[in-house]
Amino acid sequence: MTGRVAGKIALVTGGGSGLGAADCAALAREGATVIVTDVALDSAQRVADRIGNGALALALDVADEANWLSVIAEIDRRFGKLDILVNNAGIVQMADCEDVTLDQFRRVNAIMNEGVFLGCKHSLPLLKRADNASIINMSSTGALLGFPIFFAYSAAKGAVRSMTKSIAVMCQEKGYRIRCNSVHPGAIETPMVQEAEGRVGQEQPVVAGVLPPGAKGAPEDVANMVLYLASDESRFVNGAELVIDNAVTIRPF
Results as ranks from 00 to 15, higher is better:
Gly119Asn: 05
Ser140Gln: 01
Leu85Ala: 04
Asp23Gly: 02
Leu229Ala: 05
Leu242Phe: 12
Arg106Ile: 07
Ser154Lys: 05
Lys128Glu: 15
Arg161Leu: 12
Ser162Leu: 13
Ile111Glu: 01
Pro213His: 08
Lys174Trp: 15
Pro212Val: 09
Glu203Trp: 14
Thr33Ile: 14
Ala89His: 00
Leu127Asn: 04
Gly90Pro: 02
Phe147Thr: 08
Phe151Ala: 09
Val193Cys: 03
Arg129Phe: 08
Asn238Ile: 01
Ile178Val: 15
Gln194Arg: 15
Val248Gly: 05
Gly119Pro: 07
Lys128Val: 12
Val12Pro: 02
Pro212Ile: 10
Gly14Cys: 13
Ile51Asp: 00
Cys120Asp: 08
Glu65Phe: 08
Gln204Glu: 13
Thr37Phe: 04
Glu74Phe: 09
Ala130Glu: 12
Val193Arg: 01
Ile178Gly: 04
Leu118Phe: 11
Thr164Ser: 10
Leu69Val: 15
Val5Arg: 02
Ile111Gln: 04
Leu56Asp: 13
Val237Trp: 00
Ile51Val: 07
Ala22Ser: 11
Arg106Trp: 09
Ser162Asn: 14
Leu69Ile: 15
Ile136His: 01
Val207Arg: 13
Val34Met: 03
Ala152Gly: 07
Arg50Gln: 14
Ser231Val: 08
Leu127Gly: 00
His122Pro: 07
Val92Asn: 08
Asp221Gln: 01
Gly214Met: 04
Arg161Phe: 09
Leu85Asn: 01
Val34Ala: 05
Gly209Trp: 11
Asp83Cys: 12
Thr37Pro: 05
Phe117Asn: 03
Ser43Val: 12
Asp49Ile: 02
Leu145Ser: 06
Gly31Ser: 08
Thr2Ser: 15
Gly16His: 05
Leu58Phe: 09
Asn132Gln: 14
Ala66Cys: 09
Arg107Ile: 05
Cys171Ser: 15
Lys165Glu: 14
Arg179Ser: 07
Thr141Arg: 05
Asn53Ser: 13
Asn113Phe: 08
Gly214Asn: 04
Val62His: 01
Val210Phe: 13
Gly80Ala: 14
Pro125Ser: 06
Ala196Val: 10
Lys165Val: 11
Gly3Asp: 12
Val39Leu: 09
Gly198Pro: 07
Asp49Trp: 00
Asn238Val: 03
Asp83Ser: 11
